[in-house]
Amino acid sequence: MSTLLEKHIVELLQERNEKAISLLYDNYADTLYGVAFKVVKNEDLAQDVVQESFVKIWRKSDSYDPTKAKLFTWLFRITRNTAIDKLRSIGTKSDKEIQIDVSDVYNIGEQSIRPEFIDVKENLDKIESKYRIVLEALFFEGMTQQEASDELDIPLGTIKSRLKIGLREMRKIYGAVLLTLLINLFA
């Protein structure tokens, strides 16, 4: 996603031009749907979440401040919070155990993962699951670090350090894959 396109979308949003939503959808819907699905674990609910999120994005478009967050960060926050609220409102938070079992839920979306990221996905599996579970719990399950510590029965300090290491590992892998992609592109 080029920053130029980001800028263009932000401008359209601030002008309250409907085209902004169309462009946002084309560029972010799949990613945001993935985020929503990760939280609610249900296709219908995830669809509702994405729809509600886009309406919120439209309503809140005045409040987006590009100096404070990247466009995606803002979209992510809205979608994630909408998804967490959704989950809370239907009270499915009880079976967290299943939600955290990452390997199960992956299968559903496996085929529809964007092809350009398949390599990344494979590589991502290389991140030790202990880090991945923490990342998932914090980023998508809507848990606080304390909640994750309680739910996963891991000390808070370990949660913190695994989050840091997990992010670093992911960065390494993602960087390497991008490099591979680039090399393949020019080869």
Binding site: M1, D30, V35, M170
Partner: peptide, 15 residues
């Protein structure tokens, strides 16, 4: 922020 975006993109699903 970049990590988060990358991480989320990896988990993108066809809407």
């Amino acid at each position: 922020q970049e990590n988060l975006e990358s991480y989320a993109k990896i988990h993108a699903l066809k809407a």
